[in-house]
Design a protein around this nucleic acid. Structure first.
Length: 328
DNA sequence: AAGAAATGCAACCGCTTATAT
DNA sequence: TATATAAGCGGTTGCATTTCT
């Protein structure tokens, strides 16, 4: 037996919202708030809508500071890089782009950004080896404007000995991740990561999935060759230390997290199966490979195609043969 | 100019997760 | 601890608009 529907679908209006409905919802929420109960809200606000529909309308369209319109190059970079690291976790990606909604980003990715990336690949595929085209260069070259420094909360680099380092507003997600890291595993995220692990070759060899945690780098290389010590890595433990910091134990190694920023050492990126991203200070050097997120275009393409592997909606429609000729 | 195809995006659906009881 | 319910989320759909033939 399935769960009860959230509303009586026969008695709720569906489809596009009218300006009058928008005004009613906006007025009500601005004056009364949501009251923490979306299900009851439409009746109170005098709307013949499902609570879920109201919530969606508010979050995606009516709430203040929503940014509509063109995405900037910096936003493109953030979206692509995060997609490459965590997949289609749109809400997490949206959290790094103030004013953007997950729905907006999802639509933008599906309709434009994917094509932008792949279109670049089409242009350059005859000029360079696939793995030489990093994500960064793709984005930079696909833009007429070249920005040397980014104002985004993420920094990017395609040089050696550099990292994709969460900082600035990204530290927000550290505290966010601390809750997610506590064992909520997402099957879909796991499967995505595992699929990626199988799919990625070359530059992406330097990460692995361990007990639901995607780990960039070459941790396996520090394990004993017989693999026995791998078992020690499998358990993730964490302990709150107050004042915004906590220590996470991954097998035999401890990592210090801080909501106030990374204090010392080398910043690293970890993505848990729940999709959280954390920067941390590595206490023990030599565990991780460099450039964990210096994704090549091929990896992005693989990722895109893997995410759509069972769908007719692969990046390019089967009927659109022009692009397919390039890649297959 | 008209019809077809492609595109973009708002909204819906249903599953998962979080929370209250 | 188990169960019920609401919220959150990502995938998908449907329709209006734009572009192509």
């Amino acid at each position: 037996m399935g769960r009860a529907p959230c509303c009586d679908k026969a008695n709720v209006k569906r489809g596009p919202w009218s300006p009058e409905e928008d005004a009613k919802l906006k007025d009500y929420i601005e004056n009364q708030g949501t009251g923490g109960n979306w299900i009851a809200l439409p009746q109170k606000a005098g709307l013949k809508r499902c609570g879920k529909s109201c919530r969606l309308r508010w979050l995606n369209y009516l709430r203040p500071n929503i940014k509509h319109g063109e995405f900037s190059e910096d936003e493109d970079k953030i979206i692509c890089s995060l997609f490459a690291s965590i997949g289609s976790r749109w809400s997490i990606i949206a959290a790094q782009l103030p004013g953007r909604t997950d729905n907006d980003i999802k639509n933008y990715w599906n309709t434009k950004l994917k094509k932008k990336l792949m279109g670049f690949s089409f242009i350059h595929s005859a000029q360079r080896k696939p793995h030489q085209a990093t994500l960064l260069s793709v984005l930079q070259n696909s833009s007429s404007s070249s920005s040397s420094s980014l104002s985004s909360p993420l920094s990017f680099s395609n040089s050696s000995n550099s990292y994709y380092t969460p900082h600035g507003s990204f530290t927000d997600s550290v505290s966010y991740s601390s809750s997610l890291l506590s064992g909520n595993s997402s099957a879909s995220a796991n499967s995505i990561f595992q699929t990626h692990q199988e799919s990625f070759m070359g530059p992406m060899q330097n990460y692995q999935v361990k007990d639901g945690v995607l780990m960039f780098g070459s941790e396996a290389s520090c394990s004993s060759s017989d693999g026995s010590s791998n078992n020690q890595i499998n358990r993730v433990k964490e302990a709150e230390h107050g004042n915004g910091t906590f220590v996470q134990q991954i097998g035999v190694h401890d990592y210090l997290y801080s909501t106030s920023g990374v204090e010392e050492g080398t910043q690293k990126l970890m993505v848990s199966s729940a999709g959280s991203i954390s920067g941390w200070t590595e206490r023990q050097s030599g565990l991780w490979a460099e450039n964990p997120l210096d994704y090549g275009l091929e990896e992005i393409k693989q990722l895109i195609s893997t995410n759509n592997c069972n769908a007719n909606s692969f990046l390019f429609d089967e009927n659109k043969t022009e692009e397919r000729v390039v890649y297959y």
